[in-house]
């Protein structure tokens, strides 16, 4: 097994960059495949081997890998969220924290009027959103040039984004359009309250998963 030359490494990187690979995990796995294949061949053969590998990892294959990984990690995160919400499986500390959380929720529901309770939950959702964005900031990029991102970070950020968008449409926008008059509609208030409770649980589970995951890796 030989060591790759700078030129070979440059070829691999420029090829991979031209493919606009979306996820770091796919990029790294393909990069390792190229390097290992070349390390097991002679330097003279490397242009033809690289050309062959370029055919193997064509644009459509790489896009398919990105898409497939996205689908699989999305499923993994969903399972992890459900596991998180199964508080009875989380040992004594988890169980205690969940009981305290539910007790606070029950007290809040009885003490605070439904219309204001939604605002309290909205604040919780925004705080958890800020937490998720901070922890998974590696998936955020404000540069125009292409950058690969961690699949788990991107999936979590996407989910938080969808959650906030849904919230905007079902709560904030009707409130603004009716100048708050909709808050006197009991059906709206209770429907929103129920959706909000689920949203809070959903965003907290995302925050918990985000805090459990290493910043740059997929492994869940």
């Amino acid at each position: 097994m030989r060591k790759l030359t700078e030129q070979e490494l440059l070829w691999i990187h420029s090829r991979q960059k031209s493919l606009h690979i979306r996820y770091t995990e796919v990029y790294e796995e393909i990069f390792d495949h190229y390097c290992t294949t070349l390390e097991n061949s002679t330097e003279i053969d490397s242009p033809s081997i690289i050309a062959k590998l370029n055919d193997t990892f064509s644009w459509s294959v790489v896009k398919g890998m990105d898409k497939e990984l996205e689908k699989n990690v999305s499923k993994q995160i969903w399972v992890a969220q459900l596991d998180f919400l199964k508080f009875w499986n989380r040992g004594f500390k988890g169980l205690l924290a969940s009981i305290i959380g539910f007790a606070l929720l029950a007290i809040a529901i009885f003490i605070i009027p439904a219309s204001e309770l939604i605002l309290v939950f909205l604040v919780i959702i925004l705080i958890t959103t800020a937490g998720v964005f901070f922890m998974k900031r590696d998936a955020l990029s404000f540069r125009l040039s292409h950058k690969t991102v961690s699949i788990s970070s991107a999936t979590i950020i996407k989910r938080v984004g969808i959650l906030n968008t849904i919230f905007m449409w079902i709560y904030v926008i009707p409130s603004v359009l009716t100048r708050g008059e909709i808050h006197s509609n009991t059906l709206f208030v209770w429907a929103t309250a129920i959706v909000t409770i689920f949203s809070v649980m959903y965003s907290i589970s995302l925050l918990a998963i985000a805090s459990d995951l290493p910043a740059q890796r997929t492994a869940i």
Binding site: V26, E29, H33, T56, F57, S58, V61, G64, M65, E68, L69, K71, N72, V73, K75, Q76
Partner: peptide, 15 residues
Amino acid sequence: ITEGALYPALHKLEA
């Protein structure tokens, strides 16, 4: 085994 099929299969089994 084509790499284009191998890696998605590995990711699926992992998921």
